[in-house]
Amino acid sequence: MILFQNHLVVLDYDPKTDILFVEWPSLNAYDLLEIERTVNLLVDYIRNYDVKNLLIDSSHSQMHPDMDMEAYMRIVTDFALNLQKTRLERSASVVHVDKVRQEQSEKISEQVTQKVHLTIESRNFTTREEGFRWLRGEEV
């Protein structure tokens, strides 16, 4: 069921499996304010629907070279801090198809995880189906 949709994301929730799916948007410097609002909204939906499992597909997300990385890091750090205040238990990520972009994403993730002491169990996968299977408790 679609909980929310804008030009950046679609939040698709399956209450039977308690999995919220979101395809991570491409990041442009001019979208920073909207990105911040959208990730805050994502946290609100996780809290309001008491979501335990999140699947983020960032496999095709692009980051514009002019991105203000300091501002983006602040947004991602706040996102992680706010997730800690929910009952989210597990987060699966579909890795980026571009290895350079994936390395950049992993560095950001490591920095944020260390900074906020993120306790949500997280794993990376190469396909959505692998992520869905792990979140459903199936063999991967």
Rank of each mutant, 00 (worst) to 15 (best):
D50C: 12
D14P: 04
S105L: 15
L8E: 06
F4I: 01
I120P: 06
N28T: 05
E89W: 11
T113Y: 04
E34D: 14
V10Y: 00
N48E: 15
T77H: 01
L54G: 01
E103F: 09
E103H: 10
D18F: 14
I19C: 03
E89C: 06
E139D: 15
H60T: 14
E121T: 14
E23T: 12
L32V: 08
I75W: 02
L83Y: 02
P25Q: 04
I120R: 00
R87L: 03
D44L: 08
V112R: 01
R101A: 15
T127M: 07
S59E: 07
R87Q: 12
L135N: 00
E129N: 07
T38R: 05
D50N: 15
P65N: 07
M1Q: 11
E139C: 11
E89S: 10
E89H: 10
T126Q: 12
S59F: 04
F21M: 10
Y49L: 05
Q111L: 14
E70D: 11
E89Q: 15
N124P: 00
Y13K: 03
I75F: 07
L83P: 00
E34R: 13
L41W: 03
Y72E: 06
A92P: 01
L27T: 01
Q62T: 14
R133A: 11
E34S: 08
L11W: 03
M73L: 13
V22E: 01
N6F: 14
S109M: 05
V116E: 06
V22C: 02
I75C: 06
F4T: 01
S26K: 10
P65M: 02
N124R: 14
M1R: 06
T77I: 03
H7V: 11
R128I: 13
K107L: 15
H64S: 14
L135T: 02
E70F: 09
R128F: 07
K107C: 08
D31T: 10
R133M: 09
P65D: 00
Q102F: 09
S58I: 07
